[in-house]
């Protein structure tokens, strides 16, 4: 009994170190998503390609869909661009873009050069819809199910692995 009690501080200390070290390697910087299972927020913003066109929630009609937050200043967005193109070709999913705090001309240039995976892109220069979505960086991707509810969110590059792990299951519902 005495031995156990003598060893106790060491055991507590050692387990504390192990726990804290495991937090160190935990590089997951995904914040919780407050919007899971809530409906897509209302918005009223211009279209990236057509200045005169005003887009609202009612324009997101082809469901289920992905909403992808992107910008030309965001390097990771370029990394995932080919995957979005592939996704558009291969699945029955519609992808809508949310062009976030970007230069319009540069954004249009990029779509011209590298291809346009988006049904349309909402032009959110002031980051208004982004705030309503809880966006804190680009790229971010949201899955909207056939009822218009946000089901999943991913912060960072979306690729084959992320798609399989986080998103594909909602498509088969």
């Amino acid at each position: 009994m005495k031995k156990i009690i003598d060893a106790l501080p060491l055991v507590v200390f050692a387990s504390l170190i192990i726990v804290l070290f495991s937090f160190l390697s935990d590089k997951d910087d995904q914040l919780e998503t407050a919007l899971i299972d809530s409906s897509f927020p209302d918005f009223n913003l211009g279209s990236l390609s057509d200045e005169s066109r005003v887009l609202t929630k009612q324009d997101i009609i082809k469901l289920p869909a992905l909403i992808n937050v992107w910008a030309t200043w965001c390097i990771a967005c370029r990394v995932e661009h080919p995957f979005l193109m592939k996704l558009k070709e291969e699945s029955r999913l519609t992808i809508y873009g949310l062009n976030y705090k970007d230069n319009k001309l540069k954004a249009l240039d990029l779509l011209e050069r590298d291809g346009n995976p988006f049904e349309f892109s909402i032009y959110d220069f002031e980051g208004r819809l982004a705030i309503d979505l809880g966006v804190y960086g680009a790229p971010e991707t949201f899955f909207i199910d056939k009822n218009g509810l946000i089901r999943e969110r991913h912060v960072g590059v979306i690729d084959e692995k992320v798609w399989e792990e986080k998103f594909s299951k909602y498509l088969n519902e």
């Binding site: 914040l31 919780e32 998503t33 407050a34 919007l35 705030i131 309503d132 979505l133 809880g134 804190y136």
Partner: peptide, 8 residues
Amino acid sequence: LVDRYGNF
């Protein structure tokens, strides 16, 4: 803001 960004 919590509705959008969570307790964070």
